[in-house]
Amino acid sequence: MLNFNNVDDNNNGKSFGGRVGYLPFTDSSTEIGFSWLNSKVGDRESDYKDVSAKLFAYDFTFVKKINPLGGIIDIRAQYNQSIVDDANYFEPDGLGGLEEYTFNNKSDSFYAQLSYKPTTSSSNFIKNLEFVGRYSELNTPEGAEWESNVKQTTFGLNYWLSWRSAIKINYQTTTGTGGHGGSAIDQNEFSIHWAFGI
């Protein structure tokens, strides 16, 4: 599993990556992008020293004031994929020994989000509202200890107190399966956040 929280450099490998974005229209409303990162991820002088990971992402953004709709439409979507080289791993076999296993170490995730801000409303209260819907998926490798297939749907209502501060009310459902045993995940969450930029 890729560990995105490690702060120590575990090998002498160098990462290489970047992003290319393209805005096809002169009003800058639409952007499509492709990004990637390639790196060796295994610990130095370990059995996994030659194991590499490749990360890819495709993204799409559309933000535009639509006069017939009386506000700003914001659509965002991204598809991510991580591919880690095949390797052999070991786990306790329950008899005091170790069992060797491998799996196809590919993960992918996806999200799409739509929001609408009725900015041309004559009401100061309504023009500060933002309606948001979001769907996302996470699929981790079959046979891995962290195997999961999770789908998440969120509906939100934001109220912008100022240009950089908002109260966010969300209802989120998470369904799917997770873990080696494939236990079911079924969670509902209601949350209220205060978000601000400084």
Partner: peptide, 13 residues
Amino acid sequence: WGENCMRCHNTPS
């Protein structure tokens, strides 16, 4: 101003 800034954030007054 409207086209570029609002792509990423609300536009301040």
